[in-house]
């Protein structure tokens, strides 16, 4: 079984569909959306060029390691800091996984 990674995207509310569509185009199977509250230090808007907005959506997507960079780039292009979604995305390793049917090859 190929190594998997969990991609976590933090986006403004209502943009999780954009993230999922971008990820699916690059071969991701599916994802899970959670709601969260984000808190940054004062001045976050200067650095990230985004308004301070408390409510956030977290999108969790498990992908094969070989697809990780493509999916991250697609998320950044479609819902990154320079878009309305003002999203950031990163990945963490998955040590073991079961129940995933990630068969799309792209």
């Amino acid at each position: 079984m190929e190594n998997k990674e969990l991609i976590i995207a933090i986006v403004n509310p209502g943009n999780s569909d954009l993230v999922m569509n971008a990820a699916k185009e690059q071969g991701a199977g599916g994802g899970t959306v959670l709601t969260a509250k984000g808190t940054g230090r004062k001045g976050i808007e200067k650095i990230l060029d985004m308004p301070v907005q408390q409510d956030k959506e977290l999108v969790l997507i498990v992908v094969e390691k070989s697809k990780r960079d493509r999916v991250l780039k697609a998320i950044n292009d479609n819902c990154g800091l320079d878009t309305a979604g003002h999203g950031v995305a990163f990945s963490i390793p998955v040590s073991d996984a079961m129940g995933f049917h990630i068969n799309r090859d792209k």
């Binding site: 004062k42 650095i47 960079d69 991250l72 950044n76 990154g80 800091l81 995305a89 990163f90 390793p93």
Partner: peptide
């Protein structure tokens, strides 16, 4: 804790890493 393996967008990385003061 869990280590990140990668992050997209350098601006975001710098913010999480250094914050506004050390931009």
């Amino acid at each position: 804790s869990i280590d990140l393996t990668s992050i997209i967008n350098l601006k975001a990385y710098k913010y999480f890493m250094y914050g506004i003061e050390e931009d």
